[in-house]
Computed example of a mutant assay.
Amino acid sequence: MLKILVTGATGNVGTEVIRLLRSQNCHICAGVRNPMNAQQMLGSNVECIAFDFTNPDTFVNAFENVNKLFLVRPPALANVRKQIVPALNAAKFAGIEHIVFLSLLGAEHNSFVPHSKIERYINQLGIPATFLRCSFFMQNLHTTHRQDIKTYGELLLPAGNGKTSFIDVRDIAAVAVRTLTEDGHQSRAYALTGGEALTYYEVADIFTSILGKPVRYHPNALKFIRRMHSLGLSIDFILVMLAIYTTARLGLAGDITSDTEQLLNRSPLTMRQYVEDYRHFWL
């Protein structure tokens, strides 16, 4: 039976990938730092095994008899050579046949982002791979920005008037499961976006309409930095976020591709559908 190891298994994308894999004929293995906690979250039909990118002692057991790897870079790990490469070397040594990597839209043009370095190293190792280069996750709006929307009725982001081709992680996961369980996706890269590009002013209008309370967009970089710092985020992490939103502000995040629709044989989920489905987070 096909054995698939999912890293980032308790995150937005990973939990959805595991949920969809349950309907496939495969052995699902979640590589997590705390298997006991993850087991309670993911359920008894998922094998939870200790895996930590920064602890090479966990690699051998985690990769044993694994055919395919769904690879998610933990956001806090930015030093690819020190913190990601050893795990990739272990995957190669273990004979993993295919890696599906959760990458970043435009990573192939931006050699400074960690995703680009990971893509290049996977190619250098010669492991067959599929790169899912994703646009901005809709789900960030009920994780990172939940409190701003719920408590203050604000979307506080330094993205100017730029458009973003948001994608729902449920669509990303559906694509990931297809690439993990079907043939023909090796040595491919897919640019995954939603079917519409919106400004944050338009996003705020959607929230206002669905939640029945005013939500306003404030593109204030200084206030954004202070708010994120007050939430306990590190300055380094805040600066990465600032760079991502600057990409939107400069008009570089609004490209719409057809890859999501072609791979799923349906239209991508819309921002309105996302807000309706997750509205309880902001009420």
Rank of each mutant, 00 (worst) to 15 (best):
T208P: 00
S116W: 00
I118K: 03
A90T: 10
A90F: 11
G184L: 13
K213G: 03
E108P: 00
F93Q: 15
N123G: 13
I206P: 01
I149E: 01
T181Y: 04
L156T: 00
T164K: 01
L155C: 04
V203E: 05
A191N: 11
P214Q: 14
Y190L: 09
A174P: 02
N140T: 08
V175Y: 01
I127D: 04
V85Y: 13
Y152G: 09
G212T: 07
F101G: 05
N140G: 04
L180F: 05
I122V: 15
T179M: 10
F136K: 06
G95V: 08
S116Q: 03
R81S: 14
R81H: 14
K82F: 13
H115V: 06
E119R: 07
I122P: 04
L198I: 12
V100H: 00
S165F: 12
D168E: 11
A78P: 01
D183A: 14
A174K: 13
K213E: 03
V175S: 00
H109C: 01
A91H: 06
E108G: 10
G160E: 08
N110H: 09
T143Q: 10
T179L: 13
Q147W: 08
R146G: 04
T144L: 15
I167L: 13
A91R: 09
Q186D: 11
S187F: 15
Q83H: 13
Q186M: 13
F112I: 11
P158T: 04
N123Y: 09
G162P: 04
F93I: 12
V85R: 09
F101M: 04
K213V: 11
F136P: 01
A107M: 08
Y200I: 01
Q83F: 12
P114I: 12
L198V: 05
L180R: 03
V169L: 10
A90N: 10
E202Q: 15
T164G: 02
